[in-house]
Simulated scan of single mutants.
Amino acid sequence: MTLFYLKLLVTPLLMWAISLASRRWGGLLGGLLSGLPITSALVMTFLCLEQGTAFALGAVPGALGGLAAVQATYTFYLFATRKLGIAAAVSLAILFYGLAAYAFTHWGGLYLSVGVALLLIGVLIRASGREPRPDTLARPRHRYWEIPLRMVSATALLMLTTSLASWLGPATSGMLAPIPVIAWPLVVFAHVQGGRAGMAAMVRGNAIGAVGVIAFYLAMAGLLEHTGVAITMLVAMATAVGLTVALAALLKGRA
């Protein structure tokens, strides 16, 4: 029961904090924060505590396949919105995610998923860099229901994924862990409010953060059996954050 209330408390608070940071400091930072393995770390932690470490380790290949599918979906959305409206692009992107996640999880492997994810991250960083820059002086209109809706959606997905884990099995549970439940609403809302420039900044930040997500899962796979859940998650998160910050600083310097 304690874990149940912890899920209800931590997830919406994280979504609220990231949403406020995005409003205050812009889409790139919002994308970076939402791209970090926050939802993934929560899902994997609860899988460890509720299903055991062996189950969580079995979910890692599926999680990396899901991450590759996430990057494929953002790539699809970035290019599709050049021709399609937002509603049509979102609908097709969600369908595309389901197909891509199934393909990577069932027919790919860990190394293929990592390789494809890194390739797509490079494509996203390059393509988003060619989009118009956001107008830092513009003040997009924010609606009162946006952040509560994001908080509810993030919490609902976490609860659903962890509650059905024993029935779904480790592969499918892992595939669902990196679903961009925090990042995806931010990307769509940024597109609606700030146009392509705001959306591209959010996607760019998320792609940079995805490098840290890969590091998180690889560190988790290497440490979990030997160091326990708490230390593994702390080290994996620290690795992800450090790598993300370093990459963001490197790309900013080159820009």
Rank of each mutant, 00 (worst) to 15 (best):
W16P: 00
L224H: 02
I179Y: 13
A17S: 13
I18W: 01
P140A: 02
L42Y: 10
L33D: 02
G31R: 10
A56S: 06
T11P: 00
V114I: 15
A68H: 08
F4Y: 15
A93K: 02
F46R: 05
V90S: 04
S113Y: 10
A207I: 06
F4A: 15
L120R: 00
T11K: 08
F4G: 06
P37S: 06
H226N: 13
A240S: 15
V235W: 06
G31E: 05
W167D: 12
P185A: 13
Y111Q: 14
V181F: 13
I125H: 10
G253Y: 13
D135I: 07
M15H: 00
A68P: 09
L36T: 00
V241F: 05
G98V: 02
S34V: 05
Y97L: 12
S113I: 08
I86D: 11
M220Q: 15
L168Y: 11
A54C: 04
A21L: 15
L137C: 11
I182V: 15
G27N: 14
D135C: 09
V192I: 12
F79N: 01
T75L: 15
L64W: 07
A87I: 14
Y217S: 12
R23F: 01
S153W: 12
S40T: 12
V229T: 14
Y102C: 00
S113F: 13
G129T: 04
L99D: 03
G30F: 06
I208R: 00
Q193K: 14
L250F: 14
A165G: 03
L36R: 01
P180R: 09
V187K: 09
S163P: 02
G253K: 15
I182P: 03
R126I: 07
V211E: 02
L158C: 14
D135L: 09
V235R: 05
F46I: 08
L13T: 09
R254H: 11
L32F: 05
L118E: 06
L47Q: 05
S22H: 10
W25E: 12
G198K: 04
G98N: 05
G52R: 09
A156Q: 06
